[in-house]
Amino acid sequence: QEVDMQAQAEGIRTVFSDPTNFNVKHPLYSPWTLWFDSPATKGRNLPQTPVSAFPQTPIPQTPGVAAAQGWMEDIKRVISFDSVEEFWGLYNNIIPPSQLPQKANYYLFKEGIIPAWEDEANKNGGKWSIQLPKDKNRAHVDKMWLYTMLAAIGETFDPAPTQGGGGNAVSLITGVIVSTRPQFYRLSIWTRLAPNTNDDDAALRSRIEGVGKHFKINVLGYSESQRLAGPLATEVEFLSHKDSEKKGKSARKIIA
């Protein structure tokens, strides 16, 4: 095996040693799919793109997901990728959030998970999110979104993606979203699970809180004690999707 490793090391050309004739690429922990919607994608038949160039939005697989079908109708699948090199090729050829029209969203989700509450991977989960006033953050939002995507694809939001329960343990993160609205931006991190209030969930709660702290401090660049709420602005806060559905009714938020 040592010989194999050595042989591999000698034959390897990364994009750093040979940008045009590299022979290895860096696989991501999970493959990802980028989705997009805006008023321009809604309620209007867009020109057909050749199937070969544009994989069709997959038909939801499970009954619960069928409910999301209407929601998903207007959300366009942009592309899937599974390597670091492909991510940057996409990043360098697509529009940053600051140049998106109002009421647009990018959804970057793990392949096979649709950006809807109803997906099996999301239905028991929740989201960390922050809302930022547009005028003060137009210059920062692109970097914040980039860093959010990098933490997602690099799998560094969840300090223990492989921990807890043997081989089938999975990362908490299912996807990340950036939304543009007339007055603000919103960044969100969706998680597979959300803690209950009872003490049984202490371990999960602390894992979820770790994601929120990483988001606030390392990704967004705020200090731990910084308070962020204000006109059009929120703290970095967590809400389960089930509580979000209740709409303001005794929502139990966690603040990072």
Binding site: F36, T41, V78, W88, L150, T156
Partner: peptide, 28 residues
């Protein structure tokens, strides 16, 4: 992968993905 590692690819990997649909065709 940590962010600092990933950022090193930004200025090198600029190739437009073959599978990227025309952006205006999806309202982007």
């Amino acid at each position: 992968y940590d962010r600092e590692f990933l950022l090193q690819f930004m200025s090198i990997c600029k190739e437009k993905p073959a599978m990227l649909p025309p952006l205006d065709a999806i309202g982007l």
